[in-house]
Amino acid sequence: MQSLKFCLIFISLIFSSVSYSLELPSTRTLLTVSGLISNTNKDSNAIFDRYMLDQLPRSSISTHTPWNEGKHTYTGFNAQEFFDLLGVEGENLSLIALNDYMIDIPVKDFTEVGAIFATHMDGVPMTVRNKGPIMIVYPFDDKPKLKNESYYGKSIWQVNQIVVNQ
């Protein structure tokens, strides 16, 4: 009886643990994530193509920004789900753009402040020409205290690399 109980506990632990598996991209890589992550798919990095990013749970923000006229709806992958998928172990992100511009952003800007990794504007995939493939967007209209140079500076576009730091 004791061995049966132990066996049932062991089996339930196996099936209750969440395990993520990252596939390899089948098209051009848009995003490379490195640093303090526990789930990778190429060497010590996690690489993603547009299809993989579009399969992640979605988040949206409708807001005005200093870079586009009028109010737009930005949609992208949900940061918390993304961080969980990668097994993010750090508290800061270094985001790097295609032109090598880099900015450090705390993870809490995504989990508490409400920033998103936008890949679409008004339902259309963002391209390099219109600040894509990934742009960091804050909920400026919902949180007017974010309308300042500090948060505008963190709204990096053409993101193609993320390094997770302490």
Score class of each variant (00 low, 15 high):
residue 55 Q to C: 12
residue 42 K to W: 11
residue 87 G to W: 11
residue 110 F to Y: 06
residue 153 G to V: 06
residue 71 K to Y: 07
residue 7 C to T: 10
residue 37 I to P: 00
residue 117 F to S: 02
residue 26 S to Q: 14
residue 67 W to S: 00
residue 99 N to M: 07
residue 2 Q to R: 14
residue 95 L to R: 00
residue 19 S to L: 15
residue 88 V to I: 15
residue 21 S to P: 13
residue 10 F to V: 14
residue 100 D to C: 06
residue 37 I to M: 00
residue 86 L to H: 07
residue 50 R to L: 03
residue 45 N to E: 09
residue 162 I to P: 01
residue 144 P to D: 11
residue 129 R to W: 03
residue 17 S to H: 13
residue 154 K to W: 07
residue 67 W to Q: 02
residue 35 G to T: 08
residue 154 K to Y: 08
residue 79 A to G: 02
residue 52 M to D: 03
residue 152 Y to A: 02
residue 152 Y to F: 14
residue 17 S to G: 13
residue 108 K to R: 11
residue 23 E to S: 15
residue 37 I to D: 00
residue 35 G to M: 12
residue 85 L to V: 08
residue 77 F to G: 00
residue 112 E to C: 06
residue 76 G to C: 05
residue 143 K to A: 15
residue 31 L to M: 09
residue 112 E to A: 14
residue 99 N to A: 07
residue 152 Y to D: 01
residue 131 K to M: 04
residue 128 V to W: 05
residue 38 S to N: 09
residue 72 H to G: 04
residue 6 F to K: 14
residue 6 F to Q: 14
residue 151 Y to G: 03
residue 135 M to D: 07
residue 45 N to D: 15
residue 45 N to Q: 14
residue 139 P to C: 08
residue 96 I to E: 05
residue 137 V to A: 04
residue 70 G to L: 00
residue 58 R to E: 04
residue 101 Y to E: 10
residue 71 K to C: 06
residue 6 F to H: 09
residue 42 K to S: 13
residue 150 S to K: 10
residue 2 Q to I: 14
residue 61 I to C: 09
residue 163 V to M: 10
residue 79 A to L: 05
residue 4 L to M: 13
residue 75 T to K: 08
residue 1 M to T: 14
residue 123 G to Y: 10
residue 99 N to G: 06
residue 154 K to H: 09
residue 165 N to E: 10
residue 2 Q to T: 10
residue 83 F to Q: 04
residue 64 H to C: 10
residue 17 S to A: 15
residue 119 T to A: 08
residue 40 T to S: 15
residue 150 S to V: 13
